[in-house]
Design a protein around this nucleic acid. Structure first.
Ligand code: FES
Ligand code: FES
Lengths: 117, 117
DNA sequence: TTTTTAAGATGATTTATATCATATATTGAA
DNA sequence: TTCAATATATGATATAAATCATCTTAAAAA
């Protein structure tokens, strides 16, 4: 239930619920209403990645736009930070795109990562 | 002058000036008032790094706090994203800490990087 | 010395984000 | 079939970030 997720991570329940709604709509999270209801992830959901979530909640631009917010900059006209940062940004993007929620959950199950849930 | 910087990068002049003030106070940027005045960087300023700027404008936490904003997480209790992202984050931090403004300006002078100024 | 130009300081306003509130829809259980 | 529990939807409010406005201070030039 929203409450079970929101409380341990100190996010207001209503706000979490609002954030989850577009994820349900985009089939990244599943839900059932009523008693014994709540949010869950089915087999298909678990194959989604962190990037899938980011693209729904925020936007695709986070990983493609200039890190100095210069709108005329791109790979051909790189800003001074581009060359020193773009490799790391791409690494992060790749990691978030490759890693499925299932894999992340597995790490938690193995005790290699922790969640306050 | 603030105007000469703000216009080409589409940042309101008054807002840019406000952002520059703490940088002047922290001796990262220099300024002179009056006619022919404006902002500039002296020899000492040019040895400052991007991290110096970030620490003044934003805060140190950006590079040390949990990327899932979990307050109980740290190196011993890593969240699921920690392991896959922390290396890249540290890379970015190192780059921003090592690179001086002088070096970045040199890249622009060489034509390896571009600024709309 | 006066005027003009630009930064410095401060507070108000706007805009975006986060949070709160309330009403509706769905489902399991009594 | 009714009730209670929980997600869904929508709008209002609060907080933070960005932007605007106004005044003061310093310095160059006339
Ligand atoms: S052009 Fe600025 S980060 Fe790529
Ligand atoms: S514990 Fe979350 S990023 Fe390090």
């Amino acid at each position: 239930m929203a409450k079970d997720i929101s409380e341990p991570i100190n996010v207001p329940q209503a706000y979490l619920a609002k954030l989850l709604q577009p994820l349900v709509k985009e089939n990244i999270v599943s839900s059932v209403r009523g008693p014994k209801g709540g949010f869950y992830m089915d087999d298909e959901n678990l194959e989604k990645t962190v990037i899938d979530i980011i693209f729904v909640i925020d936007s695709e631009e986070k990983f493609s736009s200039c890190m100095l917010s210069l709108d005329k900059c791109n790979e051909e006209n790189p800003c001074p930070l581009h060359n020193i940062l773009v490799a790391s940004r791409n690494d992060i993007f790749q990691q978030l795109k490759e890693k499925t929620i299932r894999e992340l959950a597995h790490e938690v199950a193995l005790g290699n990562a922790f969640l306050p849930l």
